[in-house]
Design a protein around this nucleic acid. Sequence first.
DNA 1: ATTCTTCTTTAGAATTATTCTAATCTGTTG
DNA 2: CAACAGATTAGAATAATTCTAAAGAAGAAT
Lengths: 139, 139
Amino acid sequence: MGKASRDSSKAIARLRGVGLRPTRQRVELASLLFKGPDRHVTAENLHEEVAGLGLKISLATVYNTLHQFTHAGLLRQVIVDAARGYFDTNTGDHQHFFLEAEGTLIDIPGEDIRVAGVPAPPAGMTVDRVDVVVRVKRA
Amino acid sequence: MGKASRDSSKAIARLRGVGLRPTRQRVELASLLFKGPDRHVTAENLHEEVAGLGLKISLATVYNTLHQFTHAGLLRQVIVDAARGYFDTNTGDHQHFFLEAEGTLIDIPGEDIRVAGVPAPPAGMTVDRVDVVVRVKRA
DNA sequence: ATTCTTCTTTAGAATTATTCTAATCTGTTG
DNA sequence: CAACAGATTAGAATAATTCTAAAGAAGAAT
Ligand SMILES: [Mn+2]
Ligand SMILES: [Mn+2]
Ligand SMILES: [Zn+2]
Ligand SMILES: [Zn+2]
């Protein structure tokens, strides 16, 4: 049993675990996304990576899959740029540095950062989550 | 001297103050934006408001003007939604509640909220600003 | 295995927000 | 007022994303 099939089994198990059919496309994407360390991807940039590896997955499927993974709790979306959407394999409590020039995200552990003094939300509303984006630029 | 001309004079003065020619379009937009309390607008939604008042300003000019006002420091952009860009007449230190369902922003005074424990930015980078978005939804 | 049913993928068109182009117009200055 | 730099605009273009509807693949049933 080689490395590729071990990746596949893990990906397949993870997909089954969240009730998604392990199609070739979903398995390949899940392997790429969850094999290594946490990462922040864009649909377009993941699609290019996939193409570069010689895999054939349509851009529509990359979008569909990223959204399905997000709904399944395997990914979360990060909003830092009005032009592009980012997907994050780290679904735990954490925040981000955003390098505007590069378009790069860097995690800040959730325990490091504290947000205090958030007023009560407007009547009838409840806090869904608190996002902190530390925008950084070249010194 | 009526209300309209008083609004105009203030808008014209403000535009002159930041080195922008007080054209009819810029004066009308500045009057709308800065006459009353602080507000959060979208290019499209400001354009509709303008049209509703019977004023004729092209959408391209609304976009151009919002960006010029932003560069001049009269507005700032707020990034909360991957699909639309918001412009904020409140350029001071503050944060936001974002009602995802409504697409509405509500200011949180900068003194209220405190963010602590932000790690040192990556080498060679400097913190440009720290944005906090409190996403709320119907309870 | 073969068939059946239900999902899934996909190419390409469509949509949405925004920007660009290049022609026309207007504010300001002399 | 004339002249010029700067501004506005309609419409085309771009970019990210979503939609459509037709063809393909996965799982269940036979
Ligand atoms: Mn866009
Ligand atoms: Mn989206
Ligand atoms: Zn992250
Ligand atoms: Zn604000």
